[in-house]
């Protein structure tokens, strides 16, 4: 089978299928992942092909899902957990933070927990409360967890396969508003980058836009728009939020001298805070402007009819780009 045009949903589905085929210890578990194929259909068809024992519809209890995934991992399995929506991971948060993240250290390395926690995250799909949150910082702030977020179908496919193959717990944040974006994926090929490498998604010399997951697309569009005004904007797709590929970031900002960080999560104590601090530390003498951040506001994610105001969009990104360039 050659390369094919896949939606991100299909790319993830194919990654799960390949991983299930590659390792009989790999399991998929979560609410409605079986016959229904998940509410976003990411697990579509897997139940039919791999059966009840490997594609596990769990009781409705996220702490239970996470805790039993840990037990299964202790027994040698490789669970891929699906949390139905971002806002429903919190019942599992205790298990994730106190157990999943820390058991390897507690056991002085005798225990490995190769668990992937897939979470559709972020807004922009017109949903009701708890279905649009960006909580990456909670996880990235916890040592012991690795956190990644693909921005496109190709990365979604390869990063999920790499995450599942990883012996560390990986929080895998899927930008749900990009689920239906298309890209050419060749499942028989190989990953272009290691899981935790950032990628320069567009080259430029005037300013670096830093984003991950859902906001990469917005930044690419902003770079396109800025080009019409004669500005060459570089876009770095971070891909991995913990660890962060600071070397790629540093090299980019040293080239451009300016950085604007964009995410949906609130600006206050968001990923941008850490990134801005690191960029400042590493690139101080190259910086022509303070590192700016564009993100959600310090308020609960709003009702869908006003979510466009809350979410960074082309205008807000360009506004920040202009401010940075004006220095």
């Amino acid at each position: 089978m050659a390369a094919e045009k896949y939606s991100m949903v299909k790319a993830l589905n194919e990654a799960l299928r390949r991983s299930l085929e590659a390792d009989p210890k790999t399991l998929v578990m979560g609410e409605d992942v079986g016959r229904l194929g998940g509410v976003f259909r990411v697990t579509d068809g897997l139940h039919k092909d791999f059966g009840d024992a490997r594609i596990i519809d769990t009781p409705l209890a996220e702490s239970g899902i996470m805790g039993t995934a840990i037990g299964l991992a202790l027994r040698g399995y490789r669970p891929v957990v699906e949390i139905q929506f971002d806002g429903f991971v919190y019942p599992a948060f205790d298990q994730i933070v106190t157990q999943l993240a820390k058991m390897h250290a507690r056991a002085l390395g005798h225990v490995k927990l190769p668990i992937t926690v897939r979470i559709p995250f972020g807004g922009g799909i017109g949903a009701v409360e708890h279905h649009s949150e960006s909580h990456e910082t909670y996880f990235a702030h916890t040592a012991g967890l690795k956190v990644v977020s693909p921005s496109n179908p190709v990365d979604a496919h390869w990063m999920l396969r790499q995450a599942i193959a990883s012996d560390d717990p990986v929080i895998f944040l899927e930008p749900k508003r990009r689920y239906w974006d298309k890209g050419v994926v060749d499942p028989l090929g190989e990953a272009a980058l290691p899981l935790h490498a950032a990628r320069v998604a567009r080259a430029g010399k005037d300013l670096t836009l830093v984003a991950y997951g859902p906001m990469v697309k917005v930044c690419l569009e902003a770079a396109e728009a800025a080009a019409e005004d004669g500005h060459q904007i570089e876009v770095v797709d971070l891909r991995s939020l913990s660890p962060v590929d600071f070397d790629t970031l540093e090299a980019s900002v040293k080239r451009t001298g300016r950085a604007v960080i964009v995410h949906e999560a609130p600006v206050f104590l968001g990923m941008g805070a850490e990134l801005a601090a690191r960029i400042t530390e590493r690139c101080f003498y190259s910086l022509e402007a303070p590192v700016l951040r564009v993100g959600g506001y310090f308020a609960p994610y709003p009702p869908s009819r006003v979510e466009e105001t809350y979410l960074p969009d082309l205008d807000r990104v360009l506004d920040a780009v202009d401010r940075a360039l004006a220095f």
Binding site: E31, D32, G34, L36, D57, T58, P59, L60
Partner: peptide, 10 residues
């Protein structure tokens, strides 16, 4: 039913 899961799953 809980979405697609019958009560026996609970």
């Amino acid at each position: 039913w809980a979405i697609s899961e019958p009560t026996e799953r609970q």
